[in-house]
């Protein structure tokens, strides 16, 4: 991440401990992960113990302490998708990518995650790649969809 950009985010919140989640959100959003030295910088700027920053960063699912692959694949495992076969879909995605939820492949192509309901239950089961929904998925369609993401 561009350090000027990072400094700018941090400076906006300097001295405001209550802004911790906002800062982490902005950095995560731009950088896709939270490097440990950046967490140190944030702790110092916001005047929060580093352990508290780490606690918040590990508590929320959105924050990642490791770099992510070029493509973020999210399989919805909400209850409606679950009833409509999300498990089999997830198996197919795991086979196609060779990784399990929470993992990134060696070539940094995919990071796989499962997640709670995104509110589009009617079109489940679905996978979301880099924010794009692929609705009414079947295990058979997985290979074709993922091919588009290199």
């Amino acid at each position: 991440m561009d350090s000027a950009n990072l400094d700018q985010i941090i400076e906006q919140h300097r001295g405001k401990p209550g802004d911790l989640i906002h800062v982490l959100m902005e950095v995560q959003h731009q950088n896709h992960w939270l490097p440990r030295d950046v967490l140190h910088q944030i702790a110092e700027a916001l005047n929060i113990p580093f352990s508290r920053v780490l606690r918040i960063a590990t508590l929320y699912k959105t924050f990642s302490l490791t770099p992510k692959g070029r493509n973020e694949v999210h399989v919805c495992t909400g209850i409606s998708c679950h009833l409509r076969g999300a498990n089999k879909l997830l198996d197919a995605v795991e086979r196609a990518t060779g990784i399990k939820p929470g993992e990134t492949d060696a070539g940094w192509r995919f990071t796989l995650d499962t997640g709670s309901c995104l509110g589009s239950c009617s079109i489940g089961p679905e996978i979301i790649v880099n924010g794009t929904h692929h609705a009414r998925m079947t295990p058979a369609k997985v290979e074709d969809v993922l091919k588009e993401y290199q």
Partner: peptide
């Protein structure tokens, strides 16, 4: 917040 799986009316 509407975090409950299968609930999407508040967001709508």
């Amino acid at each position: 917040h509407e975090g409950e799986p299968g609930a999407f009316m508040d967001r709508a």
